[in-house]
Deep mutational scan, measured.
Amino acid sequence: DVEPGKFYKGVVTRIEKYGAFINLNEQVRGLLRPRDMISLRAENLNVGDEIIVQAIDVRPEKREIDFKYIP
């Protein structure tokens, strides 16, 4: 289970104008929005990159997770 405030290692699987999709594993995926990329620009991300993200909002009923990148 993903808990708000905890840090996780994930892999960038898709990049859109509104953010990057980060997979923690095959069943868990969330969104890293540009406003939550402190000191990281979306254009510096590539599909396949491994990054550490913090879960900031977890909505299990919608199967949605928002992440924040903190260097």
Rank of each mutant, 00 (worst) to 15 (best):
V2N: 03
N25D: 08
I56N: 03
F7E: 02
P71H: 09
D49T: 05
V53H: 01
Y18N: 06
V12S: 00
K6V: 07
Q54C: 12
I70E: 09
G30T: 03
G19P: 01
K68F: 08
E61C: 09
A42Q: 12
Y69K: 02
I51K: 00
R41L: 12
I56T: 08
D57K: 14
R63K: 14
R14A: 10
E50G: 06
L40N: 06
I38A: 13
P34A: 14
R35C: 12
N23E: 12
D36L: 07
Q54L: 15
V47G: 00
K17R: 12
E43K: 11
Q27F: 15
R41S: 11
G10D: 01
V2R: 02
G19N: 04
D1I: 14
K9E: 04
L31R: 06
K9P: 03
G30M: 06
V53N: 00
L24N: 00
I51M: 04
R35H: 11
E50Y: 15
G10P: 00
N23W: 11
R41P: 09
P71T: 10
K62Y: 08
Y69R: 02
E61R: 07
V53D: 00
G48V: 01
V47D: 02
Y18E: 08
Y69C: 08
F7Q: 03
K68E: 05
V53Q: 00
I51E: 00
A42N: 10
N23M: 14
P4D: 04
V11H: 06
Q54P: 01
I65Q: 04
K68N: 04
R33S: 06
M37R: 02
K62V: 10
V47R: 01
L31P: 03
K17M: 09
E61Y: 07
V2T: 03
R35V: 10
I22Y: 01
R29C: 14
V11Y: 12
L40Q: 06
E64V: 07
L32K: 02
N46H: 14
Y18W: 15
V12T: 00
R14Y: 05
R59M: 03
I15V: 10
R35E: 11
L24M: 03
Y69D: 03
E43G: 10
E16V: 13
V58P: 03
I51C: 04
I22S: 00
V12R: 00
K6W: 05
I56V: 11
K9F: 09
R35N: 10
E26N: 14
I56W: 08
N46V: 12
L31Q: 04
E61Q: 11
G5C: 12
E43P: 08
I38T: 10
E61A: 11
E50L: 14
I52M: 09
T13R: 03
S39D: 14
N44P: 08
V12L: 05
S39Y: 12
L32H: 03
K68S: 09
G30Q: 03
R63M: 13
K17A: 11
F67D: 03
R63Q: 13
V58A: 04
F7G: 01
E3Y: 11
A55G: 01
G5V: 03
N44F: 12
I56G: 04
E16L: 10
V47Y: 03
L40Y: 06
N23C: 13
R41W: 11
V11T: 12
G30L: 07
V12Y: 00
E26F: 12
G19M: 08
N46W: 11
Y18H: 06
K17D: 09
G10Y: 03
F67E: 03
Y69M: 07
G48N: 03
Y8S: 00
R33N: 05
R33E: 04
K68D: 03
T13V: 10
V12K: 00
N23K: 13
D49M: 14
R59F: 04
E64K: 06
G48E: 01
R41Y: 10
R63H: 13
N25E: 04
G5I: 02
R14S: 10
Q54D: 00
K68V: 09
V11L: 09
I22K: 00
Y18P: 01
F67G: 03
I15M: 05
Y8C: 03
D49P: 01
V47M: 04
G5D: 03
D36W: 09
E43Y: 12
E3C: 12
E3V: 15
F7M: 08
K17L: 09
V11S: 03
Y8H: 01
S39M: 13
E50T: 15
D66F: 14
K9Q: 06
N46Q: 15
E43F: 13
F21W: 15
G19W: 07
G5S: 03
R14I: 05
V12A: 00
D1N: 14
G5F: 07
G5R: 03
I52C: 15
I38D: 10
D66T: 13
P4I: 15
E64A: 05
A20M: 10
N44L: 13
V28N: 05
V53K: 00
Y8E: 00
V58Q: 02
Y18F: 12
L32R: 02
G30Y: 05
D36Y: 09
F21D: 01
I22T: 01
P60N: 08
S39P: 15
N46C: 14
V47A: 03
F67V: 04
G30V: 09
L45G: 01
V28E: 05
I65T: 02
Y69N: 02
V28F: 08
N46A: 14
P60S: 09
D49L: 08
V2P: 05
D49F: 07
A20Q: 01
P34D: 11
A20R: 00
L45W: 03
R59G: 04
V58C: 09
E64I: 11
G48D: 02
F21A: 02
N23V: 10
V53R: 00
R33Y: 05
I51H: 00
K68H: 05
E64N: 07
Q54V: 10
E26H: 14
G48H: 02
N44G: 12
V53W: 02
P71I: 09
Q27N: 14
Q54H: 03
D36K: 03
I51R: 00
E64P: 04
P4F: 08
T13G: 04
P71Q: 09
N46M: 13
I22Q: 00
Q27A: 13
F21Q: 04
